[in-house]
């Protein structure tokens, strides 16, 4: 019998009574998502991985999201997969803008290493305890967090005739540069 996400929530509330879990509401939120406070994250993840009924041994992916006008601004989304139970579960951590810090889960799932580096690279969220928190996709000396909503896209204006008024028109002498008509050997 597949493991229902409600059962997972029940077990979590039972095991961590003091922690403020919150189910994400919304009619079009198609996956069961649970908000977890950042300080309880590592314990919750360890429990979900080791608990015999849950066995969420794989962290499928971890990503960040920026909901700019909303406070707290960032979110870290953890999507867990349990192969024995054939079940998925999603956890979310709200990350404030002033102190964007989340404890790392590389101790629970080693695969989180690169996912957290990517979230750091694109959003600037720091993962405390991460073994090697450096930029992964952008050059090492890049300044800024590109996927934040207040970072620009970096669009470069394409040069057309109508928006390059000072362009140099090609001189007629350039026609001499056209290569000589050369015949190929086969002809």
């Amino acid at each position: 019998m597949a493991l229902a996400p409600e059962r997972v929530e029940e077990k979590l509330r039972e095991r961590f009574p003091g922690v403020a879990f919150e189910r994400q509401q919304g009619e079009a939120v198609r996956d069961f998502t649970l908000f977890v406070p950042a300080d309880a994250l590592v314990d919750v993840c360890t429990f979900l991985r080791d608990e015999p009924e849950c066995t969420f041994t794989m962290l499928s992916w971890m990503g960040g999201a920026d909901h700019l006008p909303r406070v707290p601004r960032f979110e870290c989304i953890y999507s867990l997969l349990s192969i024995p139970q054939a079940a998925r579960f999603t956890l979310k951590v709200r990350v404030p803008e002033e102190q964007p810090r989340v404890p790392t889960v590389t101790g629970v799932w080693p695969t989180a290493n690169w996912h957290e580096r990517e979230a750091y690279d694109l959003y600037g969220i720091t993962f405390t305890g991460h073994p090697d928190l450096t930029r992964i996709l952008l050059p090492e000396d890049w300044v800024g967090w590109p996927l934040r909503k207040d970072s620009p896209l970096g669009y470069e204006e394409v040069a057309f005739t109508h928006n390059t008024p000072g362009r140099i028109k090609p001189s007629p002498a350039l026609k001499k540069l056209a290569p000589k008509k050369v015949r190929y050997r086969a002809q």
Binding site: L138, P146, L153, Y155, E156
Partner: peptide, 13 residues
Amino acid sequence: SCGGVFNNYAILQ
């Protein structure tokens, strides 16, 4: 040739 489909911060135009 010119940046192609991708006109953003990451790709050389």
